[in-house]
């Protein structure tokens, strides 16, 4: 690109490295704290851990019921991500192609929901009297539904990028509407769906309030809720808390590292066209 061609590349690197450090250091700091004993932390909080001390992880793992929570987190995240992607992709296609009337109004409504007020009590009533409260399926539906609008919104932008010629080719084929979406559109949307999936994964994995409200059973709680419980219990013991943070964050960071190529290309190309 011409415009910054004159900027010395070393300067660019220096700036980018500084910003990257700003993003990375806080996380490394937490890891450092997690490796310390409480006494060590209280006396010299910022020094590099003198020895690798893994007791905090063991304690966090045990106290936070992390095994059950971990399993639940996986279930909720996987199911609601798959569900969201499927349902959102199905809805995005007709909206984007204006196959139904009132798509404009629908998109407007979707826009408004970005900042609609929550209604915990009404939703709780709904969950309760449909026997969805405190069930795996109920929570999966809830976490899929709660920002379904945003996901559809993003995918609508992506579908616009898929040339409509394909539709015609398919219609000649006599391809059924659903089969067409599932077999032709869905594969073409792969990068977009990866993006939506990652947003959804981040979203569900990190949710800490909804599990408390809609899952009354401790055995059904996900990981972040376990961590949130920790905040109170170990507010005086930052080392264990830090270990808990590391445990919760690591799987997500791994998924991110694995998928980052798609996410970064996907987040951009999708949200734009929407």
């Amino acid at each position: 690109m011409k415009l910054t061609a004159k900027l010395p590349f070393t300067l660019v690197h220096v700036i980018l490295i500084l910003f990257s450090l700003c993003m990375l250091l806080p996380i490394l700091m937490i890891l450092n704290i997690a490796l310390k004993t409480n006494t060590e932390f209280l006396n010299s909080p910022m020094s590099i851990a003198s020895s690798l001390h893994f007791d905090n992880f063991a304690e966090a793992w045990e106290q936070g019921d992390m095994i059950t929570n971990f399993k639940n987190s996986l279930i909720y995240t996987a199911c609601s991500t798959i569900l969201t992607c499927l349902i959102a992709a199905m809805a995005a296609y007709p909206i984007s192609r204006k196959h139904i009337r009132g798509t404009g109004a629908l998109l407007g409504l979707i826009g408004i929901t970005l900042f609609l007020p929550d209604g915990i009590v009404p939703l709780l009533f709904f969950m309760k009297y449909t026997a969805l409260l405190n069930t795996y399926s109920g929570y999966i539906l809830l976490s899929s539904g709660i920002n379904m609008a945003l996901m559809v919104f993003i995918l609508v932008g992506f579908v616009k990028n898929i040339p409509a010629d394909l539709d015609e080719a398919a219609s000649i084929d006599g391809c059924g509407y659903f089969r067409y979406i599932l077999t032709i559109i869905l594969p073409l949307l792969k990068p977009a769906i990866t993006t939506v999936a990652m947003l959804k994964i981040i979203n569900v994995w990190n949710d800490f309030i909804n599990p408390y409200l809609y899952l009354t059973d401790k055995e059904k709680r996900p990981l972040t809720s376990g961590l949130y419980l920790f905040v109170g219990e170990f507010s005086t013991d930052w080392t264990v808390l830090a270990a808990g943070i590391v445990i919760v964050v690591t799987p997500l960071l791994l998924v991110y590292l694995f998928l980052q190529k798609y996410i970064i290309s996907g987040v951009s190309s999708g949200a734009l066209k929407g």
């Binding site: 349902i87 959102a88 199905m90 809805a91 296609y93 007709p94 909206i95 196959h99 139904i100 979707i110 929901t113 609609l116 007020p117 929550d118 209604g119 915990i120 009590v121 009404p122 939703l123 009533f125 709904f126 539906l141 809830l142 899929s144 539904g145 709660i146 379904m148 609008a149 559809v152 509407y177 659903f178 979406i181």
Partner: peptide, 23 residues
Amino acid sequence: PWMAILPALILFFIFKIYPALGT
């Protein structure tokens, strides 16, 4: 097309519109 957006629409109304109206 309506059937295709119906699932999304239902979830959207139940988990977003209805609670807001309740509020």
